Amino acid sequence: MATMLVASRKGLFVWEGEGAAWRIAALHFAGEPVTSVLADPRDGHWYAALRLGHFGVKLHRSADRGRSWAEVAAPAFPPKPAEGPMADDTTPWSVDLVWSMAAGGADEPGVLWAGCLPAGLFRSEDRGASWSLNRPLWEEPGRREWFGGGYDHAGIHSIVVDPRDARHVTLGISCGGVWQTRDAGTSWSLTAQGMKADYLPAESADDGNTQDPHALVQCRAQPDALWVQHHCGIYRSTDGGALWQPITAPAPSSFGFAVACDPGNPQRAWFVPAQADVCRIPVDGRMVVLRTDDGGRSFQAFGDGLPQTHAYHLVYRHALDVDATGRVLAMGSTTGGLWVSADAGEHWQELSRDLPPLSTVRFA
């Protein structure tokens, strides 16, 4: 039986099932906005980040698959310096939301990464009991040029840890491009060559430091294969992100937020298109999922089981996931739709249209 963690504006839903039989097994943090979840494959711990407005960001951990939860420390910036090179930094030194979480390597028990808004990267070495800001990235001079996409400030939404070497971490930042470290965060390199931002003046469109990758994923079997759903289209890299190749989906659109990559096949990936930046609904009111099986040379659009008329669903960057087999997918929308597919996205089963807006769907 499979388990899905479905984070929403009004709580964390735990779904259990397989095939055509799925049910809500539990609801945690009812009525509270959950912005990020992590099911750590190394020890089975679950993590849930909450954004409580006046009460700030909170982080909870469960060691028993949600039967009980304990609050742990949330990532937090140190006090902003009153003097020195960071004194005039206009970015707030306070965490507005935890946008992404990732487990460290198999040889790093207890190590976690958290990407936040604004774009601070934090590391924990004790399962979230404490966190430290990665200062080399925060103090990178290029960070001052980053800017927000849908938010006022840039944020880190994608964290990919190389399964071959946990010191190698790749980040997707909106709007700050793609950054990589090969020494566990001691130094960083901008690796967005080939990306193009058509929302900038022509002379700045190729600037890697102001690209807006909406989501970044990695093929676990071949970690040098990376996919990005960018604000301006789809990109793929086969050399670990050194160079990005633009991919054009012929129909209905190359715009969207979500991308999932088959963990065993670097040629296969899924996307959920929307009409355009200025019209974030399915093209012609018909919801489909795009799949490529040949590295982006061709695409198929699948809509069986998805709403095909008057559909206004948008799938955000963390609301599409594929399980370890590469066959089962799950997808949630901003208007409370939740679907699963047991055949690599070719047919979909609707689980609900009545959930709160969904931000994250992850298999546990």
Rank of each mutant, 00 (worst) to 15 (best):
L117K: 06
D88F: 10
M101V: 08
A102L: 05
G120A: 08
S130W: 13
W131P: 00
A102S: 13
A87P: 00
D88V: 05
R135E: 08
E108D: 04
W113R: 02
S94K: 09
A102R: 07
W93Y: 11
A114Q: 02
A87N: 13
A74L: 03
G84I: 03
P81D: 14
P118S: 07
A106I: 01
P85H: 06
P75G: 02
L133M: 06
E108V: 03
A103R: 08
T91A: 04
T91V: 08
S100E: 08
A87C: 00
A103W: 13
K80M: 09
A82K: 12
S132K: 03
A87V: 12
L112R: 01
P92F: 06
D96E: 14
E125C: 13
R127K: 11
P75S: 03
R123H: 05
E71F: 05
D96A: 02
T91P: 15
W93A: 14
L117M: 11
A129V: 03
R135G: 14
D126Y: 00
S124D: 10
L133N: 07
R123Q: 11
D107N: 09
A76I: 10
N134M: 07
D107F: 00
P92C: 07
D89Y: 00
V111I: 13
G105W: 02
W69C: 11
V95R: 00
G104F: 13
A129Q: 11
G104M: 10
R123M: 05
R123Y: 04
